[in-house]
Design a protein around this nucleic acid. Structure first.
Lengths: 204, 204
DNA sequence: GCCCGAAATTGATCCAGAGCAAGGAAGCGG
DNA sequence: CCGCTTCCTTGCTCTGGATCAATTTCGGGC
């Protein structure tokens, strides 16, 4: 089962499973499935029931709320996971998930993870920590959206990308400007204008 | 130790500890403290380090982000808890907490809870579930804020208060209109206008 | 190198909701 | 019953960012 050992391999590299003994990891991997999705593919739609914990091996996944204007909640890159929260809830997914690049996913069913929580205290703590972290980020994002104007949000976002301590750096945006705009909760037009005007002011 | 048995009593009634055996509960209560706070008291300020898991026995606590305009993230009533997420993170509180009424709090230090996670799998699951739930609510709230206009948010909020299935009901707001307004992410003026205009249209 | 569709820029207009200001209740201690 | 404070209402103005509408630039296939 190449798939299975691959899955175990990938999962083993995630922070979440960093300290999980190989035997248990193999057990988890038995209930996991790798899934290759091309750029642009819809991975899951809001309202569907979750298929399991999703881990990104490589590629990039966009989690977003779609109304008349789209709001990107999170961009999930290699080594990160999503849909943890919904695993323990009997609720449909609250967001849409789309691959922004060719992506390899590992999908782990809920049941064995619940068992692992009971069996491995380090895992339980790790999961709790990771959800806490996610929650914290969400609150910070909420704050940015409700308290600061578009200019400040962009500024904050930009230096969250820059390496810490650097006075001046050149950063690579993780996605198209349209997506970044939705991430920041503005339209692409506004983002474009802001970037230009910050450029004109020599701040960038 | 009246305080201790009181704390154990209160904690025992929380969904989180519903299935925790009395012996463990007593142990937790040894590390807990009840705290009486008067209406208007600041319980914790953004940026402080958390003192522990907070449970509300009676009263009402407002969790909010303060900028030039305040955004209320959550109103915590009797039987509910807050600050769980921040327990497992080495980060300062992201929100302010203020008592909106005379309130009795139970404050539980982090250490014994971490121990309890290891010792009691039901507790670990319960905590995970409750954090997932919290997360879900936050995402829904985020959606309301970013996707819908003020009118729709108010409508949604109102019938989240009404008992399910009722076609017409009279509800009691859990706090002053000013606070509700901040909860909905609008100013009190806007809330006032909306209520009036919904009244004029005979929808309320 | 050339073409085509997708992404980005730029300009002009519009609007929901914030901010400001000036009254009205409504509760409450004396 | 009065005066004080706190909360709520209502009218007016102002503005950040959305929306609509053209262009312009870019990237990849042939």
């Amino acid at each position: 089962m190449v798939n299975r050992t691959l899955a175990a391999d990938i999962l083993g590299k995630l922070p979440l499973f960093r300290h999980t003994p190989p035997a248990r990891l193999a057990e988890i991997a038995r209930h996991a499935r790798t899934e290759h999705v091309a750029r642009g593919t819809v991975i899951a739609r809001r309202g569907e029931k979750p298929r399991g914990l999703m881990a990104v091996a490589y590629g990039l996944v966009k989690l977003s709320l779609k109304g008349e204007t789209e709001k990107v909640l999170r961009l999930v890159g290699p080594g990160e996971t999503f849909a943890e929260a919904v695993l323990f809830l009997d609720k449909p997914l609250p967001v849409d998930a789309v691959a922004l690049a060719d992506t390899l996913l590992v999908v782990v069913r809920a049941a064995p993870l619940l068992a692992l929580i009971d069996a491995d205290r380090a895992f339980a703590r790790g999961l709790l920590a990771s959800m806490s972290q996610r929650m914290h980020e969400l609150v910070m994002d909420f704050e940015a959206t409700t308290q600061h104007g578009a200019r400040e949000r962009l500024a904050g976002y930009l230096d969250s990308l820059a390496p810490p301590g650097a006075v001046q750096a050149s950063v690579q945006l993780p996605a198209s400007k349209t997506v970044i705009a939705a991430r920041l909760g503005v339209t692409k037009e506004t983002l474009s204008r802001l970037l230009r005007q910050m450029g004109d002011e020599g701040l960038i």
